[in-house]
């Protein structure tokens, strides 16, 4: 009885509100991945019933391979969004990373060097985004959209619109080879995913990023180096966009000026949001982002195999995106009670 008296003054949320509110619905909402996997199964079952090719090992591999690009970009973009930022320049940074690396390759640079240089160039773009947001006080969406347009112009000017060819075999193997039957690009994506999972869930940096996105003022008040976190996040987002671009050019064997662009930006952000990362910052997981990325390529693939016209692709993805963000709102209102 004394227990009840004590918990009345300061109710114990460990049991009080949670146990009542922890309905099945809440649990499912909290773990967006579970809902997404259900969606995948439904789409998968539909596709498998319409096309015998769908479940073939080659096709499953293809689904994962085409999700690699989305996922690698989405890791950096997702971390940035969790930290309260946004990067719409990703699609152009993607192209810039690919073009810089390919340019160096055709000039005869060794591929590790060319990749590092391509990444470095894009990290500078990340710093530019950070500077415009932080010191010119331009909202992230506008700042990075500006970068997107300018880079798109520069990408075209530098190449004159022509593909950069031919690329050395050693470099192309990054996107085309495999180890024990698992494609290299999938392995790279897994490594990137593990690295980001570790960063977000197991390091101080990850907690600080969540704090920054969850409540920036609280981050400042508790002595977090918010400016340092900001610059790190913008640079990381640019680096993953560049890495995705480099993987893509290795896969297609050319530096294409048309490789990235608006749809690449939007796909990465869509994978992040479908994967349950909150636009409001603070919440989201790498697992969720992975499922979001695979779902995007699964939808692509399923619609092609079932010969549903490609326009439906956009309709389906748009609908899922809207649902995901609506669910995010619902989830927040369930997790956060009004004080």
């Amino acid at each position: 009885m004394t227990m009840t008296a004590a918990s009345k003054t300061v109710p114990d949320p460990g049991r009080g509100p949670e146990s009542k509110r922890d309905s099945v619905l809440t649990k499912i909402l909290v773990r967006q991945e579970t809902t997404l996997i259900l969606v995948m199964l439904v789409i998968g079952a539909f596709a498998a019933s319409r096309s015998s090719l769908f479940l073939s090992p080659d096709n499953v591999t293809e689904i994962f391979r085409s999700s690699v690009i989305y996922f690698v970009m989405a890791c950096g973009a997702g971390l940035l969004i969790i930290g309260g930022g946004m990067d719409f320049s990703a699609g152009a940074v993607f192209t810039l990373g690919a073009l810089s690396t390919c340019k160096l390759l055709v000039e005869g640079a060794a591929w590790p060097l060319a990749i590092l240089a391509g990444l470095a160039v894009c990290c500078v773009i990340g710093v530019v985004n950070f500077v415009v947001v932080t010191y010119l006080h331009v909202p992230p969406i506008i700042a990075t959209l500006g970068t997107f347009y300018m880079l798109t112009g520069i990408d075209n000017l530098v190449t004159g619109g022509a593909d950069i060819l031919p690329l050395p075999e050693s470099f192309q193997r990054i996107g085309q080879g495999n180890v024990a039957g698992v494609s290299n690009d999938v392995l790279i994506a897994i490594a990137v995913g593990l690295l980001f999972w570790f960063l977000l869930e197991r390091t101080r940096f990850g907690v600080n990023v969540r704090a920054l996105g969850g409540n920036r003022q609280a981050a400042v008040g508790n002595g977090l180096r918010v400016v340092r976190l900001d610059v790190a996040l913008y640079v990381i987002a640019a680096a993953t966009a560049a890495l995705a671009g480099i993987i893509y050019s290795a896969r297609v064997g050319a530096g294409q000026v048309t490789a990235g662009g608006t749809s690449t930006t939007l796909n990465a952000i869509t994978a992040v949001l479908i994967g349950g990362v909150s636009l409001m910052g603070g919440m989201g997981t790498i697992q969720g982002i992975a499922v979001g990325a695979v779902l995007l390529s699964l939808i692509d693939n399923a619609l092609v195999l079932t010969s549903i016209p490609p326009q439906y692709n956009s309709i389906v993805i748009g609908a899922i995106l809207v649902c995901a963000v609506a669910v995010d709102h619902l989830r927040r209102s369930r997790i956060y009670r009004k004080r």
Binding site: V207, G214, A218, I335, Y336
Partner: peptide, 18 residues
């Protein structure tokens, strides 16, 4: 209060000094 709602009590209490 400068608390981060999406983090738990333990994380909030260690914030800035994890």
């Amino acid at each position: 209060l400068a608390l981060v709602e999406c983090l738990d009590i333990a994380h909030n209490m260690a914030l800035g000094n994890l």
